[in-house]
């Protein structure tokens, strides 16, 4: 496949994945703020504002919106074309990339991304957003999932598919790392597994699980009440849950292997080597060890690997 096309595919699905996660963050943030008292705590960001930190957009937001409120944050992260991290910003870049790959992704996948883009820029989206923000974000989420569903159900498992997968799962590792990092940092100290959880904390951890569509699955698999260690174990180390970091790293490595080809014993690219090492670490590490080493440094390490994998993919496939 053309290197240019491969690069566009990779970024198309990265941007759509990011857009979906921004919608998830804002939706759950809004939901949490409706529970009285959640914003309390000096130095604590409100859940919606936390999204600004997760997306590294706090400074750019404050530059354009002095003394702004929740609505301004939502507006900025949803419709502001100037903000590179807004849903509309993401979707339009995804579309720009997809435009140059129409002949390989097929009519259905292209149309879905185009529909989402046209919807977001139109009046209907505005009215929905005002009438029911939650309904609006759900629609965005579902639209992104439909994009992925069409990829799954209309594309053959060739290079096109695997570059799309690679972009999606690498982005998901990245954003999950950021979300967990921000969630744990805002409490200044990493959660102490021995301390009793207050009702407020419970709401927040539950919110985190819900934003990842993980609440029910967590309860079934951990058979336990919601507590920080369990949540971290589940969202980082679970091998089967599709938004858990370990699961996503494994999908990245699989797709990369398919792209590179070659036999199983041979490691053909540095990106594959990096992913393989991360995957086996996630497979064999115990959650207690993560906390021993420090949760934040551990998450930092994942972010670093993610960035390096991205750079290696760029070097190996896109800059021929």
């Amino acid at each position: 496949m053309l290197s240019r096309v491969a690069e566009s595919l990779f970024w198309t699905s990265r941007y759509i994945e990011r857009a979906e996660n921004v919608a998830r963050l804002l939706d759950i943030g809004l939901n949490l703020e409706l529970d009285a008292g959640v914003q309390a705590g000096p130095g604590d960001s409100s859940p919606v504002e936390l999204a600004l930190s997760i997306l590294a957009s706090r400074e750019s937001f404050q530059a354009g919106n002095p003394g702004a409120d929740r609505t301004a944050v939502l507006e900025y992260l949803t419709f502001d074309r100037r903000s590179p991290q807004s849903i509309l910003g993401m979707v339009s870049r995804a579309r720009e990339n997809a435009r140059s790959t129409q002949e390989v992704i097929g009519v259905d996948v292209w149309r879905q991304i185009n529909r989402l883009y046209l919807y977001l820029g139109g009046q209907r989206a505005r009215r929905r957003f005002v009438a029911s923000p939650s309904g609006f974000y759900t629609a965005i989420k579902e639209s992104c999932i439909l994009f992925e569903g069409l990829i799954q159900n209309t594309l053959p498992r060739d290079e096109v598919y695997h570059f799309l997968q690679l972009g999606r799962y690498l982005e998901r590792v990245d954003i999950m790392g950021r979300i967990l990092h921000a969630r744990c940092q805002s409490r200044i100290e990493p959660p102490d597994p021995t301390s009793g959880e207050t009702g407020l904390d419970l709401v927040r951890w539950t919110g985190l699980l819900r934003s990842c569509s993980a609440y029910g699955t967590y309860l079934r698999s951990e058979r336990d009440r919601i507590e920080p260690v369990g949540v971290i174990r589940f969202l980082v180390l679970d091998p089967d849950f599709p938004r858990a970091i370990r699961f996503c790293v494994a999908r990245c490595r699989e797709s990369l292997k398919e792209i590179v080809g070659g036999d199983d014993d041979e490691v053909a690219s540095s990106a594959e080597r990096l992913l393989g090492r991360l995957e086996s670490e996630l497979r064999y590490i115990d959650v207690a060890e993560i906390f021993d080493r420090g949760l934040l440094p551990f998450l930092d390490g994942i972010q670093t690997t993610c960035r390096r994998v991205g750079e290696e993919i760029q070097r190996t496939f896109f800059l021929v």
Binding site: L2, S3, R4, V5, R99, S100, Q102, E103, G106, V107
Partner: peptide, 16 residues
């Protein structure tokens, strides 16, 4: 893009 897709051939730009 349409013609490339319909013929099943690659669509390239000069830089490709």
């Amino acid at each position: 893009s349409f013609l490339a897709r319909q013929m099943g051939v690659e669509l390239v730009e000069g830089r490709d």
